[in-house]
């Protein structure tokens, strides 16, 4: 690890790097939480003791997000079609704002993700949330890996047949 990322709060650059890393880590946690089942989120949350009261900022609501693709895969964007999304937001007494955005229509899941996102941002709770994320990530990864092994079994192995007489 280099000097700038190690130092905390020393000068604007160190601060910026820390914030960028923090944003990346929070995004990584949300990437997993967004794909989790409501029950595993609820079970995980219950394992955290002394949870603070949450203030609802945005009651859970259903809505749409227009999913975009790119022409040819990497060109100009176009509108592919909409996806249903549920979102919620809440705040810890210490000010951290948690946001939950999940595909589909599931208020409970959106609130659970928002709750865990808020707790993740609070230093004392982050390790506990990371443990929950890790457990879910392991389950998702195992599922992905199983799918990959099944897909890999359908890979075509060509063998060339000699045609005509070249000798």
């Amino acid at each position: 690890m280099d000097q700038t990322t190690q130092t905390f709060g020393q000068g604007a650059f160190g601060q910026e790097a820390t914030e960028a890393r923090q944003a990346e880590a929070r995004q990584a946690a949300l990437r997993v939480l967004a794909r989790a089942e409501a029950d595993e989120l609820a079970t995980g949350l219950e394992s955290i003791a002394d949870r603070p009261e949450m203030e609802t900022l945005r009651a859970p609501e259903f809505g749409l997000v227009m999913a975009r693709g790119r022409i040819g895969g990497s060109g100009a964007p176009f509108n592919l079609g909409e996806v249903t999304v549920t979102r919620a937001a809440l705040r810890l007494p210490t000010g951290e704002v948690g946001q939950g955005h999940v595909l589909g229509r599931d208020r409970r899941r959106a609130v659970l993700v928002a709750t865990l996102d808020a707790l993740w941002q609070s230093r004392p709770y982050r390790p506990a949330v990371e443990r929950i994320v890790e457990k879910i990530r392991a389950r998702l990864d195992a599922g992905e890996a199983r799918k990959r092994t099944e897909t890999a079994a359908t890979k075509v192995n060509f063998f060339t047949m000699v045609r005509g007489e070249d000798t």
Binding site: G63, L64, V65, M66, R68, G69, G73, S74, T84, T151
Partner: peptide
């Protein structure tokens, strides 16, 4: 049904080059 829902916004363009490929 879709006409009953508000639109929150548009996604970033999906990257099919990073697809978890099943076929």
């Amino acid at each position: 049904y879709r006409t009953t829902l508000p639109r929150f916004g548009a996604s970033l363009p999906v990257d099919t080059g990073k697809m978890a490929v099943e076929r």
